[in-house]
Design a binder for these strands. Structure first.
Length: 488
RNA sequence: GUGCCUAUAGCAUAAUGGUUAGUGCGCCGGGUUGUGGUCCCGGUAAUGAGAGUUCGAUUCUCUCUAGGCACCCCA
């Protein structure tokens, strides 16, 4: 019985060998696919709306930050560094409970002590808080501050919109003069102009809370008869925040708006005079602006002047074309419990500016690459190399190397890619002789020199080839770009 | 948060309801045991995830995820 069965089995196995093998292969393939799926699922991923700013982009960021700092210095603004985490309360009190920022975009949580905290969605509230906390009302007014750092809003990501994004902001606290509003706008325009982005300032005045209240009644009354024609969004706006209906994109509303009351007609005399002065200053400073009666801002604390910085379009308009915005916020300090203190400020989104720089091919001048590469063979050479590097650093000769590569061939390949003029070669033999090889990378000619004299010889060679002192003070680590001057 | 579009190696791309998913760039190595560029050879690495339809799915369907666009809103 057993033999027979064995025969059958053998027979079967034989007949179905190929099929069986195929099935096995398939099983293996499936298992491998599942394994791959597991591996992929376990890979770390970025949080939605968060991003890495890679070395390739750093040149633009550095150029932008350097420009910002230069303009800030020129207008004698002082830098302030503010915490990323604040009490939730700070923002809910200032930005406005109705705003989307508070309603759905703010990252809020309780910390270990049970304090309700929030990742800052903007910077102005923190600046105002700092002004109060540190008694800055005792400083000469207006206090001029600027900040730069990441902000957080849980919005749906889009091009030029991220959940963590960088803002630079300028605030002038303690003066209600129109020149303050104007100077901030001039400054914003200056930064973007220096970068190379043409803009037009969209500007409007929303007056004091009092005249705004009257205007809102009027505006609501105007739209009431047309209520049925409005879409859901606009109905909601009319109820919750009527001012917002002014920047509706619905054609029906746009049509209706032409006949709607405009806020400028409801401004009191003081507000009107203030606004006129701001515009006169802008004329004087030759900042291109456009009166925009429909411009309103999302944050509750604004009064009087409001403005946005719109990139001049070349037809290919993008939704996120506002590079920044701001305005006067005379009530904010008092709202936080400070003395009544007039103030004005604006913020710009760095990602949007960098994006525009990319579209316009705006880049920092390429950093002169290292002119010298140092190839080391073996540990003895590496030991000597450590000392030599110190010498080069003191002589301000930027020297590149390929840490971690062993063969001379591989090191020369890197030297070639970096485009250096000279490669220093230090091997066992040279270490013993107290010499080093200098290879001219263009001609391929090599000379053996006393290692003690290599620094001075190199210096002479580099000066000859450049005429001027070509040596930047930049570190060798990043060969690609960057200005070396870096803030933030 | 709502609607629409998209998803192939690190990047750029090709192709397909059916054997091993092709190419270029990059990266690594060899041709050259201590000598770069050009060239030649080799290697590396991908159908975003899950489920369904099917004998068979990277391709068709659904869900999820991510990105883009428009809206909401905003920088």
């Amino acid at each position: 019985m057993t033999p027979k069965k064995t025969n059958e089995e053998e027979e079967l196995t034989f007949e179905e060998e190929i099929e069986k093998k195929a099935a096995e292969e398939k099983g293996k393939a499936k298992a491998a696919a599942e394994e791959e799926g597991r591996r992929r699922r376990s890979l770390p991923t970025l949080l939605r709306g968060f991003r890495d700013i890679l070395p390739d982009e750093q040149g633009k960021w550095n150029l932008l930050r350097d420009t910002i700092r230069q303009v800030a210095d020129a207008y004698s603004f002082d830098r302030i560094e503010l915490p990323i985490l604040e009490k939730t309360d700070l923002f809910t009190r200032t930005i406005g409970k109705q705003s989307d920022i508070i309603q759905k975009e703010m990252y809020v949580f309780e910390d270990q002590a049970g304090d309700k905290v929030a990742l800052r969605p903007e910077g102005t509230a923190s600046v105002a808080r700092a002004y109060i906390n540190h008694g800055m009302l005792n400083l000469p007014q207006p206090v001029k501050l600027w900040y730069l750092g990441p902000m957080f809003r849980h919005d749906r990501p889009q091009a030029g919109r991220y959940r963590q994004f960088y803002q630079v902001g300028f605030e002038m606290i303690g003066s209600n003069e129109a020149i303050v509003d104007a100077q901030l706008i001039v400054l914003a325009h200056r930064i973007l102009k220096d970068i190379g982005i043409p803009i037009t300032v969209q500007i409007n005045s929303i007056g004091t809370p009092e005249c705004r209240r009257e205007y809102l009644v009027e505006l609501t009354n105007y739209f009431r008869p047309f209520r049925k024609k409005l879409n859901e969004d606009d109905k909601r706006r009319l109820q919750k925040n009527p001012l917002r209906i002014l920047d509706s994109k619905d054609p029906v509303v746009l049509e209706l708006l032409t006949g709607a009351p405009q806020i400028v007609d409801w401004l009191d005399e003081v507000s009107k005079a203030h606004f006129m002065k701001v515009l006169e200053f802008l004329d004087e400073a030759e900042v291109p602006y456009a009166l925009n009666p429909y411009l309103v801002r999302g944050l509750d604390y604004y009064t009087h002047t409001v403005f946005e910085l719109w990139e001049d379009g070349d037809g290919g308009e993008l939704a996120q074309n506002a590079l920044g915005g701001g305005g006067r916020y005379d009530g904010l300090l008092e709202l936080l419990g400070g003395r009544p203190t007039p103030a004005c400020g604006f913020a710009m989104g760095l990602e949007r500016i960098v994006r525009s720089m990319a579209e316009r091919n705006i880049d920092p001048p390429a950093r002169p690459a290292s002119k010298v590469f140092f190839a080391q063979l073996g540990d003895a050479a590496r030991r000597v190399g450590l000392r030599l590097f110190e010498e080069f650093r003191k002589a301000k000769i930027p020297v590149a190397e390929a840490t971690g590569k062993n063969s001379l061939k591989a090191q020369l390949e890197v030297a070639n890619k970096l485009g250096v003029s000279y490669t220093l070669i230090l091997g066992q033999k040279e270490v013993l002789d107290g010499t080093i090889i200098i290879r001219d990378m263009d001609s391929g000619a090599q000379e053996i020199v006393d290692i003690k004299k290599v620094t001075s010889i190199l210096q002479r060679k580099l000066e000859q080839s450049e005429g001027v002192n070509p040596l930047s003070h930049t570190p060798v680590a990043d060969q690609k770009q960057g200005t070396g001057i870096t803030i933030e």
